[in-house]
Design a protein around this nucleic acid. Structure first.
Lengths: 194, 194, 194, 194
DNA sequence: GATGAATGAGGCTTCATTCAT
DNA sequence: TATGAATGAAGCCTCATTCAT
C-alpha cells in the first residue's frame, strides 16, 4: 500500500508541476485542463481521477509552492547570522522564487479571481504565513537595534511588492544575472529598513 | 461631419470607460462583451460597430488610461520644484493610479496574456514611455547631485514594482489613507535613491 | 415592440414543443440540448438565448402543458351539466392529455429527479392545482348526493393513477380508439365513486 | 466448482441488490457504476467481472425482482380461497411491491428508455407474465360468476395502473398505512370488476 | 478475482463574433 | 446605428468501459 500511495503522490506531483507551468504561461483562465494533461501525455479525463476539478488542482499547486517557500524562509530564520545577513538571504530566496517559480507565484497575486470562497481562506492564511517571516525578521532587527523603520508592515509590503515585480521584466538574456539582482535589491531594500 | 465624428468619439470613450470598469472588476477574461454593453444600456452586437473586436477594445482602454497617466507625469516633470519634491509627487501620482485606476493598471501588468503580437508592441512602447519619466527624474536628480544610485534602471523598477503591489492589499477600509500611503512610500523610496 | 415580443414568444413556444417531444421519447436525461435544437434546425448554442439552461427549458415545458390542461378542466367544471357528466368529461380530458401529450405528462411523474429545489415548488403547486379540480368535482358530487365515497382524496389518486398508466400500453394501432377508452374508463371509474 | 459457482451467484445477487437500491433512488441514468460498487465496498472495475455492462446489470435487476413478484402471485393463485379474496390478496401483493420495491418497479415502467432492443423482448415477456396472473384471476372470477366486467384486459390495466401510481405520492409519514391502502384499494377496485 | 488507472465520447454551458434587418 | 438572433468553437466535467497487473 505504501508503494501505491507513493505512486499516487508522485503522479499528483507531476500533474501539479505541469499545471504550474501552464497556468503561469497563460494565467488561470487561459490554462486548460486539456493542455495540462497533454503536457504529461494524458487525457484531460484522467486529471479528474486525481483532482476534483480545475479549482482543486490549482489550489494544490498553490499549496505546494508556497509551502516549499515557507520552509526555506523558516530555515533561514533559524540560522545563526546577523539580522542584516538574514534579511539579505530572505530577499535572495524570494527573488529566486519570484523569478524561477514565477509560474506559481503569479497565482498568489490575484487569488480572489481564481478561487472560490472555500479555498480562499486557506490560501490567504498561507500567504500571511509567508509574509509573517519577513515581518519577524524586521521586528527582530528593530528589537535588536539593527533596523529602524516606523511602519514595519508597510515596509514589508514595499519589499515584497518590489521583488514581485521583477518577474515582469526579468529575462535570462538580460544584462543582469539573478545573483546580481539579489545583491542589488538587498542593498537597496536594506536602505529602506535601516 | 465634424459633429458626427465628435459623437462617435464620445461614444467610443463611453464604451472604453465601461470596459475599464468591468475589466478591472473581473479581469480580462472575466469581462464579457455583454456586460460591457449592458453597463451602457446597449447590446453587445453594437460594440462591434465601434471596435473591431474585444482585443481592440481592451487595447484602446489601455491606451487611454496610460496616456492620461503619462500626461500627468509630464506636467509634473515640467513643474519648477526640487527633484526630491518632483519624485515625491510622481510617486503620489503613480500610487493614486495604481489604487484608483487599479482597474486598468492591471492590464498593464501582464499584457502578453491579454494582447496579441500586433498590439503588444505599441503597448510596450507606451509602458516604456511611462517608465521613462521616472528614469528622467532620477537621472536629473543624479546629475544635479540630489540623488545617488548606481543602477538607476533597476532602482526605477524597484520603485514602480513596490507601488504596483499596493493594490494587492490596499482597502479603503484599511487603517491607512491614500495620502498616508503616498507620504510613507515617498519617504521609504527616497531612502533608496538618495 | 409588440411584434418582436410575439416573435420571441412564438420561438420559445416552438422550442418548448420540440423539447416536449424529445424529452418524452428519451426522458429528461436522455434528451440532449443538441437534439432539441436540431429538431428546429438550430444549434444548441441558440437555445441559451431563449432559456437559461436545460432545467429552465424543461421547467417551462411543464408549466405550459399543465397550464393548458388546467384551463380545460376549469372550463369543464363551469359547464352546466350533471356531476356524472362532468366527471366523465374530465376523465376524457385527462385521458386525452395522458395519451396525446404523453410527452409532457411524463415529466410530471418524477419531478424531483428532474428539477432543483427552486423549481420544484411551483411545479408541485401546479400539480396540486390540477388535481384539485378532480377533488372539487368529487366533493360536489358527494355534496349533491351523486357520488358516495369515503376517502375522496384516495379515490382521486386512484382515478388519476389508473389513467396515467394508459400511456404505458396505449398504441394508436391497438384495437381500442381513444374515444372507446375514454368511455370505458369513465364507466369503470364511475363505479368507484358511486 | 459447485462452491465457487455458488459464491459467484451470491456475489451477483449482492450486486443486483445494491444496483436495485441505487437505481431507484436516482433512476437509471442517475445511478452510476461507481456508486453501485461503493455500496459493496468494491471498485467499479470489478463489476465488469460479473456483468457485461450496465445495461446487463440493470436487466438482471429487473429479472430478479419481477421474478420474485411473479412467484408470489402464482402462490396466491393456487391458494384455496374465494376469487374475491384472491384478487384482494393479489392487490395487496402488488401494492406492497409498488411501494417497498418501488425502486425496481420503476424500471418496469419505462423499459424502452432503459433497455436496448435485445433485452426489451424478455422484459416485456416477463411483464406480460406478471400481468397475466391478474388476467387469470379476473377470468376465473367471471367464469365462476363472481365478477362481471366487459373488457377484462382494460380493467386489469386500470387496476395495475392505479396501484402503480401510489408510489408517486405514498409516504411512510403520511396518514395512511400500507395496510389501510391495501384495504381501500381492494374495496374500490373490486367495485370495478364486480 | 479485484483494482488502480486511463480513456474518450458526450453533455452542458459560455461567449466572441457575425449579419440581416 | 443599433439590435435581435444565431453560430460554433472551446471549456469543464461525468462516466461507462477497458486493461495491465
Amino acid at each position: 500500500m505504501k508503494l501505491s500511495e507513493k505512486k499516487l503522490y508522485k503522479k499528483k506531483q507531476a500533474i501539479i508541476l505541469s499545471a504550474v507551468k501552464i497556468v503561469n504561461q497563460k494565467g488561470y483562465q487561459g490554462a486548460t485542463m486539456e493542455e495540462i494533461a497533454a503536457e504529461l501525455l494524458m487525457t484531460k479525463g484522467s486529471l479528474y481521477y486525481y483532482f476534483k476539478n480545475k479549482e482543486d488542482l490549482i489550489f494544490q499547486c498553490h499549496e505546494m509552492v508556497l509551502g516549499q517557500a515557507i520552509g526555506e524562509l523558516q530555515d533561514c530564520f533559524n540560522e545563526d547570522i546577523s539580522n542584516e545577513q538574514r534579511l539579505r538571504k530572505m530577499i535572495a530566496i524570494h527573488i529566486r522564487y519570484a523569478i524561477e517559480e514565477k509560474e506559481t507565484f503569479n497565482m498568489i497575486i490575484k487569488p480572489d479571481q481564481t478561487f472560490s470562497k472555500n479555498q480562499l481562506s486557506p490560501i490567504l492564511k498561507k500567504r500571511n504565513e509567508y509574509a509573517s517571516w519577513f515581518d519577524q525578521v524586521i521586528q527582530k532587527g528593530i528589537a535588536e537595534g539593527d533596523f529602524s523603520i516606523q511602519e514595519p508592515k508597510i515596509a514589508r509590503m514595499l519589499l515584497l511588492g518590489s521583488m514581485n515585480w521583477i518577474q515582469q521584466w526579468y529575462s535570462p538574456d538580460g544584462d543582469k544575472t539573478i545573483e546580481e539582482l539579489q545583491a542589488l535589491y538587498a542593498d537597496y531594500l536594506l536602505k529602506v529598513v535601516k
